[in-house]
Design a protein around this nucleic acid. Structure first.
Lengths: 148, 148
DNA sequence: TCAAATTAGATTGTATAAAATTAAATTGCT
DNA sequence: AGCAATTTAATTTTATACAATCTAATTTGA
C-alpha cells in the first residue's frame, strides 16, 4: 500500500471503529430512551450493577472516562434518583457511588436490552465473541503502550 | 450466558467498541496536534483528499455525521484556512466543500501519521486488515437494518 | 512536625454528537 | 405559471468528551 492509499478513509482501522461505535450507540438510543437513560448512563449502571460502592476514580478507570465527564454525568444521575454520591469518611478525597433502590431495580427493565440490540444487528453470537476478543486485545495493547 | 451475564460490561461488544474508539483517538491527539487539527477534522480532510467538491450532505453520509456536527466543524476549518464553503450555483440549497491550497498541502505532513499510529499500537498489518473487515461487515449490517 | 508533594474530585473551556426545529429553495403536479 | 410538498442547510438544545487548572484532603520525608 502506497502512502496515498494509507490515507484513504476505507483503509483506516480507527475510522471504522469510530463510525461503528457511533452507529451502534445510535441503535441503543431509542431502546434506552424507554428507560429514560442515555448510553453513557447505561454503561455507568452496568458497571454499578456488577460492583457497587466504587469511587469515582475506580469507575472512571473501568469506563475510560475522567472526572470532567463523570462528575456532571453522575450529578445528573443523582438528580434522576438512580444513584447517590457520598464522600468516604476514611478518606474525604474520595467519592463513593451507590445505587438507589430505583437504580438497582432498573436492571429488571434492562434485561431485555442485549437481546433487542442483537436482533437489530443480525450479528451471530460467534461473530460477537470473536470481534469482542480482538477488540479487547487491541485495547490491551493500547493501554500497555500509553503507560510508557 | 444468563441474563445477568449478558449485562456485564465485559460481555458488551458495544462497550469495547466505544472504549477502543476513544482510546485510539486519544493516541492520535498529540500526533494531530502537531498539524493543528483534531481527529474529526482529520477524517474530514481524508475524505476531501480522496474526493473534493462534495456537498455537506455527501460528506456527512461518508462520515456518518449530520449537519449539526459538520456545520460548526467546517466553519472552524474555513476560519483556519483549510477549506472553503460555497453555495452551488445550480442548486442554492447545497454547500460545496473545497480544499484551499493550504488544506491540500497538509496532506504532505499527514503521510507520516498512519505509520506513526501503527507503531504506537503494535498491531500487525494482518490483524488490522482482519479487524477492519469484520467491523466493515458489522457497519453494513447496521446500515441495512436501520434503513428499514 | 510541618512543608512539599501527591491525589481525588470539581471546574472551566473547547470540541464533538445528534435530535428537533427553522428557514430557504426546489420540485412536481395541476 | 403557481403553489403545496419535499428537500436541504443551518440553528438550537442537550449531552458527552477531555485537557488544563484549581481546591481540598492526605501522605511523605527531611
Amino acid at each position: 500500500m502506497n502512502r496515498d492509499e494509507m490515507l484513504k478513509l476505507d483503509n483506516q482501522l480507527c475510522f471504522v471503529l469510530y463510525a461503528c461505535s457511533r452507529e451502534i450507540i445510535r441503535l441503543y438510543r431509542p431502546v434506552l430512551a424507554e428507560l429514560g437513560i442515555t448510553y453513557t448512563q447505561y454503561v455507568v449502571l452496568m458497571a454499578l450493577w456488577e460492583q457497587e460502592a466504587v469511587t469515582l476514580k475506580e469507575l472512571g478507570g473501568r469506563l475510560y472516562l475522567d472526572s470532567g465527564t463523570l462528575t456532571p454525568l453522575l450529578k445528573k444521575m443523582e438528580a434522576a434518583g438512580l444513584i447517590t454520591r457520598m464522600r468516604c469518611p476514611e478518606d474525604e478525597r474520595n467519592i463513593r457511588i451507590l445505587l438507589t433502590l430505583q437504580g438497582r431495580d432498573l436492571k429488571h427493565s434492562a434485561y431485555r436490552i442485549p437481546e433487542k440490540i442483537l436482533s437489530m444487528t443480525q450479528i451471530t453470537p460467534e461473530d460477537v465473541r470473536h470481534l469482542k476478543g480482538q477488540l479487547n486485545q487491541l485495547l490491551q495493547k493500547i493501554e500497555v503502550n500509553s503507560e510508557k
